Amino acid sequence: MSTLLTEGPARTLECITEKFVVDFAQGIDTARDPWRSPQGMAYYQRLKETFIGQNRLRQWAMDDALLDNLEVSLAWLGQLVGKVAKSHLATALVHERISQMNGASMRVASYSAEARGQLALLKQQLEQRLQKAGKQFEQNNLYLMATVHCEQVFARWGAGHYQAFSPAGRCYVALQELRWGAFGDALRHCPAEQAAQLLEQVRSHAINRLAVDIDASTRTRHFYHQWLSTPPAAGLMEHKDALIWLGNGSDSERQPVSYSVTQTWQGIALGMPRICSAMRLGSAMVDEVFI
């Protein structure tokens, strides 16, 4: 976990720093607004301000035009990739984005020679990191590492680390922790049989933990608002905003449960069951996040 973020949801969620770097890379040199909600955008901006200050980049924030400068943004991304993003997933997604920009720089005259050089260097660094990770995957027991990671994440849930979220929100952030970490690496690189076993492990953990949190059996059905109700706590709105930002990529049709759990500023998706058990809710979220 990065020591840059020591308060709020970021204190207990390792996936936040990884997703932040990917979101920053996705936002470079594009007019596309990826945010569905002002809450998600506001939380991202708070993270951005935190990293600017902690990474001695505060002077860049003095001039809004400078923050929009491509060369400055690429320099910042290089620092974030080197100091903040640790996961293979984050590295792969940033590499994909940089490769797209690198290809565009060959065709678009507006890219400066400095920007082209930065893109090429960053692409090379990311490729080296991915190659190194690939060799480590071959040498390590990914299945064992994933199993340990799964146990750790659900132990944190049981210890109350995600208590400020709704019961369903706790499940979603636990799955995101796994997706961005060693569990997700194993799921993407293990043989199919082992990946299927890992999915059943996390499915069982998610279902059982949800049942414990709502104090019922795994098959007892409850109205959806019981699953989505957030307990009163300090920093309530920041946790809600963080959940909205984490689930920003959820689609109301393809991931109706994740969308309903995270995008609480919107109405419940049609595909979200109005009455559901821990078994149905947990299994659906596992499928939506990992499959």
Rank of each mutant, 00 (worst) to 15 (best):
S99I: 00
V94D: 12
I28E: 06
W35V: 07
G27A: 11
K86A: 13
K123D: 15
E18M: 02
R46M: 07
C171M: 15
S105D: 00
S277W: 04
L74N: 04
F154L: 05
L80V: 04
G160C: 13
S252A: 14
L67I: 01
E49Q: 15
L187N: 02
K123A: 15
C171A: 15
F154R: 02
V286D: 08
A159I: 01
H189D: 09
D215V: 03
A195W: 01
M106Q: 10
L142M: 04
M237V: 11
F154T: 03
L89P: 01
V21F: 09
Q100H: 06
A182Y: 02
T147Y: 08
N55T: 14
S204T: 15
G271E: 05
E18G: 02
D23T: 02
E7C: 01
E7R: 12
G282N: 03
T30Q: 09
N141C: 01
E193H: 07
R179A: 13
V108S: 08
R58V: 13
Q59A: 12
L210S: 08
L5P: 05
H95T: 07
S166T: 15
P9E: 11
E138M: 04
R280F: 05
L243E: 05
I214S: 12
F223H: 15
L47K: 09
E200M: 02
F51I: 14
Q26T: 03
Q266S: 12
R156L: 15
Q54A: 13
E200V: 01
L144Q: 08
G53I: 10
S166R: 15
L77I: 08
V148Q: 11
L77P: 06
H222F: 15
S277G: 08
S250G: 06
R46K: 12
A206D: 02
A133I: 14
S260A: 05
R274H: 10
G158M: 10
E71S: 12
R170P: 04
T91W: 14
Y259H: 12
E96C: 06
A10L: 08
L142F: 00
A242R: 09
N69F: 06
W245F: 13
T262R: 01
K86H: 14
L198H: 06
R280D: 12
E138C: 00
R221H: 05
Q59C: 07
Q201V: 09
Y259N: 08
T262F: 00
E127G: 14
E71H: 02
L66Q: 14
L199W: 05
L270A: 14
S258V: 11
A146Q: 06
A10F: 05
Y43W: 14
H225L: 09
Q263T: 01
A216P: 03
S87G: 11
D33F: 02
Q79A: 12
A242T: 03
S110T: 07
A278I: 05
L142Y: 01
G27K: 01
W157K: 08
W245Y: 13
Q45P: 00
L144Y: 04
F223M: 10
T230G: 00
Y44M: 02
M145C: 04
A85T: 08
L77H: 01
G160M: 07
S2K: 08
R97W: 09
V108A: 11
D23Q: 11
T3S: 11
D33M: 04
A269M: 03
A104E: 13
S2F: 07
K132C: 00
R203E: 13
I275D: 06
G267R: 09
A186F: 03
A85E: 13
A269D: 05
T147P: 00
N69C: 10
